[in-house]
């Protein structure tokens, strides 16, 4: 039976079936639920977007980045400051927030991009903390210090404002959907293949003529820009940004999302984001003990499913084939190296 499901899953028709089921689920969900659960799903969307953004860096290229909350913060603060001081509409600030976060990533990461593994990780931790502390210290009196920036407008589409939980739910999930489409096609492009090649073996990648430095930087800039988009939407939903929303813990959550879900796998990231954002809500009645459960679940996961809940499929299939010594015809979209 297990095989049967797998086969069904692997056929194109089966995939379409599941995909449409998920899409219908997403579309129907908010109409069945209370506002609270719609909001929970909204923050699930925010984390999905953050997970996807970090996945570009961590999953596709294999760069350890534990300072991603810094880019998220820059996106949120760009929106907050420009909207409250100059009155620029939030939706117009969406690309600008992405650009600012991406540009900051470019500036900060170009001198350190050659660092490897743990060393790079340490620098990114520092970077995230510096951003947070800078916001806390209220430079030039624009970030409002520990109280943050408040009074951000709702995004306006011209004919209507996005101002209810329901509208925000669809807003974030449409953005997430677009990002998934973009990232999926990026995965199958020359850039995606180059990234994966760098992740597997940097020297081999270089020997093949891949410009490792610029591809790494590109991944970083794209990841940061997506985090900036998440920051923009977050700021407009809460109408306030303050430094405690962008703590080191937040970076850790994004890191866990990618690790739990499976590095480099888009459905995996969605599952990871669901786990991270829903788990604390479900276990909230247990108050202080819930982190204990969370920790235990993480440990069990790492023991029994070290590759994540839904690892990148291509690797799994090839591994399975190698183990069984069989050769199945490859399916479209799963060509070797695709």
């Amino acid at each position: 039976m297990n095989d049967e499901i797998k086969n069904r899953l692997n056929t194109l028709g089966g995939r379409r079936f599941w995909l449409s089921l998920v899409l219908i689920g997403f579309a129907v969900y908010p109409f069945l639920m209370s506002d609270y659960f719609i909001d929970v799903a909204f923050f699930f969307g925010i984390y999905a977007l953050l997970g996807l953004s970090l996945n570009v860096v961590l999953g596709e290229v294999g760069l350890f980045d534990l300072g991603h909350a810094g880019f998220y913060a820059i996106g949120a603060y760009t929106t907050a400051i420009l909207n409250t001081t100059l009155g620029i509409p939030v939706l117009m600030l969406l690309p600008l927030s992405a650009f600012t976060a991406g540009f900051f990533a470019y500036l900060v990461c170009s001198p350190i991009i050659h660092l490897k593994g743990d060393y790079f990780l340490l620098v990114t931790i520092g970077m995230g903390e510096i951003v947070r502390l800078a916001l806390l210290n209220n430079p030039f009196g624009i970030t409002g210090g520990p109280n943050g920036v408040f009074g951000i407008d709702y995004p306006s589409l011209g004919f209507m404002d996005i101002d209810t939980s329901l509208k925000f739910y669809f807003f974030i999930w449409i953005v997430v959907g677009l990002c998934i489409l973009g990232l999926m096609s990026l995965q199958h492009s020359r850039v995606g293949r180059a990234w994966n090649c760098i992740r597997e073996d940097e020297i081999a990648a270089e020997a093949n003529g891949i410009d490792v430095r610029s591809f790494k930087l590109l991944a970083f800039v794209i990841g940061a820009a997506l985090a900036g988009v998440a920051g923009n939407i977050y700021a407009s939903k809460l109408m306030i940004v303050s430094p405690e929303s962008f703590s080191f813990m937040e970076s850790c959550m994004m890191f866990s999302i990618v690790l739990i879900g499976g590095m480099g796998s888009v459905p995996g990231v969605l599952i990871g984001a669901a786990a991270i954002s829903l788990f604390p809500e479900i276990f909230r009645p247990m108050a202080q003990y819930r982190m204990l459960f969370f920790g235990a679940a993480m440990i069990l996961m790492m023991i029994f499913r070290p590759g994540g809940i839904w690892p990148r499929k291509r690797g799994a299939i090839q591994k399975g084939q190698a183990l069984k010594g069989i050769k199945k015809p490859l399916l479209p979209g799963e060509l070797p190296g695709a």
């Binding site: 209370s34 506002d35 609270y36 909001d39 929970v40 923050f43 943050g148 939980s165 977050y234 939903k237 809460l238 306030i240 940004v241 303050s242 405690e244 929303s245 809500e281």
Partner: peptide
């Protein structure tokens, strides 16, 4: 003590 969770908590109460 988090703005994000605060918004969720308030939504939960008013619901």
């Amino acid at each position: 003590g988090q703005p994000r969770t605060g918004a969720l908590a308030a939504t939960k109460l008013v619901g």
